[in-house]
Simulated assay, not measured.
Amino acid sequence: MGRKLLLWLIWLSFIVYVLVFAPPLQSDTFQPIQTLLAGQIPTINPVIVSLFSLIGIWLLIYSCLVFADGRVQNLPAWAFMLASVGTGVIALIPYLALREPNQSFSGEKDAWLKLLDAKPTGIILLFSTLVLLIYALVFGDWSAFVQEFLTNRFIHGMSLAFCLLCLLFPYPTLLSDDMARHGLTSDSQLFWLVALIPLFGPLAYLCLRPPLLSFRSTNS
């Protein structure tokens, strides 16, 4: 109950903060996202392009755990993840709050689960992340990004959402349950490495975890 309550408080606090306390809406608040969707990437600060893309990387990381987890939940995991494409962490946190801890998996993996469970998927995500970070570090205008963070509500909220995705990954038993489904003990050093190293810990986990076995139960 405490886990669920804290997640709902985080969810509500994030929404209230972005709507009330974040930088006010300006006429150009949503210009970055409009420019990105229009494909005019060269005109945008590489830091913003990378941040926007890394939000997508995070959602794919969560997908690699959530869709298998959803098989044993009374929740349509796909609906929450689909909604998160447009709303990010706002749609993801309710799933984390509503799901029940469960370390079992039953049934055959379909093609989608096989793709999300495959080590090459983790390797591709890791490589993509490295490219995005190098792009931001080498070509990005960080002083301009700081100014955007302080004045643009969209950039401000997206930056905070990225931080929340990092912080929540190990918390709501999603990670420990997934480790159990892959035959790993949640009290191992691997768990703490994944939990304490933002972004690259989860990526390394996806590259190293054993495959999820069909009809395998790891309930403790």
Rank of each mutant, 00 (worst) to 15 (best):
L132W: 06
C64P: 02
I48M: 06
L208A: 10
C207T: 10
S186G: 06
L115R: 09
F14Y: 15
L25C: 05
P202M: 07
L9E: 10
A111P: 02
S176Q: 05
S63P: 01
R209T: 14
I10C: 13
L9M: 15
T43M: 13
G183R: 08
M158L: 15
S106I: 09
I10Q: 07
L116Y: 09
I10W: 08
G122F: 00
N219A: 10
F169N: 02
L203W: 03
S214V: 09
T173S: 12
G140P: 02
L175F: 09
F14A: 10
L116H: 08
Y95N: 07
E108K: 12
D177F: 03
T35Y: 07
T29I: 11
S84N: 08
L59H: 00
P172V: 11
R71P: 04
W8T: 11
I155C: 08
V66W: 03
L167C: 12
L82G: 09
S53V: 00
F215D: 15
V146M: 13
L190I: 03
G107A: 04
P42A: 10
K4L: 10
L36C: 05
L150C: 04
P101D: 14
S106Q: 14
S53F: 06
P202Y: 02
I93G: 01
L212W: 01
V18I: 14
Q73G: 03
R3S: 10
A77H: 05
D187C: 09
L115A: 11
L130D: 05
R209V: 12
L196T: 13
L113E: 15
L132S: 06
V194C: 01
L37V: 12
K119Q: 04
V16N: 03
L82I: 14
T129A: 11
L6R: 14
L65Y: 02
L150P: 00
V47A: 12
S27I: 12
T173P: 05
A77L: 08
G86L: 07
L212K: 00
K109A: 12
S27K: 11
F215S: 12
F139W: 11
L92F: 02
R181V: 03
C163S: 12
L168K: 05
E148I: 00
V194M: 02
L96D: 00
K4Y: 06
P120I: 04
L168I: 09
F145Y: 08
E148H: 07
L125Q: 05
H156F: 10
Q73D: 06
G140K: 03
P46A: 07
A79E: 14
R71L: 08
I90P: 01
R153Q: 13
P210K: 04
V85F: 13
N219T: 10
L36I: 13
W192R: 11
L126H: 02
L116I: 13
T185M: 13
L167V: 14
D110N: 15
S176C: 03
I55C: 03
P42H: 07
L150E: 05
S104L: 09
F127G: 08
Y135W: 07
P32W: 02
V20I: 15
I93M: 02
V72N: 05
N102C: 13
T185W: 12
L96H: 00
L212M: 04
Q147W: 02
F14I: 10
S214G: 11
F154Q: 04
T121P: 00
S217W: 01
F154P: 00
W8I: 14
P198Q: 07
L212F: 01
L12E: 07
F191D: 11
I57A: 02
R99G: 04
D110M: 10
S106P: 01
T29R: 13
V131W: 08
